[in-house]
Amino acid sequence: MENPEHRWHDMGGDAAGPVPMDGHDFAIWEKRVDALVILGQQRGHFTVDGLRRALEDMGEQAFESMTYYERWVASLNQNLIEAGVYSLEELGTKMEEIKARGDTYGAVQS
């Protein structure tokens, strides 16, 4: 377990290498995650602190191995499940249905 008195995300002052300067433009699925996060808050289902809480609880391994918006969509889901917006059964069923539509992000849009 991580050090509970100095959690992984609380990284101010940690040793680290040069700042990587490369960037990317956001893909449409990333923009959609961003929009769903904002709109879900406006609907009153969760707060930005709830999103951060879920991200922090995902742990350092998630920070190292997942992209920013992969972690955000996981946190969004966690918060929507906690708010009772949909159930895991509904999510799982829907994800299987989507996967059956095709192999690429563009191909499976309804």
């Binding site: 509970p4 008195e5 100095h6 959690r7 609380d10 101010g12 002052g13 602190d49 951060r52 809480r53 922090e56």
Partner: peptide
Amino acid sequence: MSPLGHIRTPHY
């Protein structure tokens, strides 16, 4: 203090 949970006061 260091309560385990979501807090916004940096460790440093």
